[in-house]
Design a protein around this nucleic acid. Structure first.
Lengths: 151, 151
DNA sequence: GCAGAACGTTCCTTGAGGGAACTATGGTGG
DNA sequence: CCACCATAGTTCCCTCAAGGAACGTTCTGC
């Protein structure tokens, strides 16, 4: 239900959740990412209530994660496309896929595969250090206070 | 509210959301990750309803993301610690932090910093290709059907 | 002019989240 | 022994969001 707003917390996790923390949002982003950009497509693919889909799309557009674009003027018809901000959120989706593949896919294996265009290989995403390039997992870091930490 | 269950969808994103898609769960994981492992600590830190916290912790323990461990037998007192499965979810948190830092932190800068223990540098996480090691973002891949894609 | 497609909007019902009060177990200080 | 405190929940009531179905609108094509 999420009545508590996370946007004001001094935490980038909370602020990210404020934008896409509601459970349907990542799935909406996924659909847009794979090219299901229209209302009817998403509604049927996800099985989401039309009312909730309307609300989520409006919110994601407000947050500048999606852009509502007219693809036909008569009749007026709209589709939703990723902004730069939204495209970067898709990295998050890839990490979710990685975890889901490892821990929930079971014997059937992953439902989708990624091919890295740069090298042509089937691969998954691996979190690496922006400074040294080596793998960097949550267990490999120290957490320090940053400049934006209020009080 | 999430009445629709995502666990049965043939999508690793949906199945991951089934485990931690409810908005409070990532923040609970964050708290456990940084050492706030007890009920009272989390409740006060997050401002979450005690009822909801109880429900989430029980769910996360069922899903084997957290483990409920007795740290005192008289009186009986419990804390929650990450399992291996849960620790890997923290990689997801780091990616959320990265996005939140970039798009929501504003002038104040990031609230926390990460120091990579292997190289000693302040860094953030960068998604890389498990095959070639180069950066791999959502815009750099082709999505292909995998073995676990039903029908 | 009737059906159909695309994109919503409205209405009602149900049930999850918020919040405060209450319970249980045991420790501690006088 | 008793009052008080700490921790970890549990119970209760209220509100409001999610689900679901029906309806509305604007255009096209036959």
């Amino acid at each position: 239900m999420q009545r508590t707003r996370f946007g004001d917390m001094a935490c980038s996790i909370a602020r990210t959740l404020d934008v896409i923390g509601e459970p349907w949002s990542p799935l909406i982003l996924r659909d847009v990412y794979v090219g299901m950009t229209r209302f009817e497509q998403m509604q049927q693919d996800l099985g989401i209530s039309r009312k909730v889909l309307t609300e989520r799309l409006k919110w994601l557009v407000e947050q500048e994660v999606l852009e509502r674009r007219e693809y036909s003027s008569r009749p007026p018809r709209f589709e939703y496309v990723l902004t730069g901000k939204g495209a970067e959120l898709c990295d998050l989706l890839m990490v979710m896929v990685r975890w889901g593949d490892r821990w929930t896919a079971g014997e059937a294996g992953p439902p989708v595969l990624y091919r890295h265009r740069a090298c042509g290989q089937i691969a998954h995403v691996e979190p690496c250090c922006s400074a040294c390039g080596e793998p960097m997992h949550a267990t490999d870091v120290d957490v320090l206070p940053g400049p934006g930490l209020s009080r």
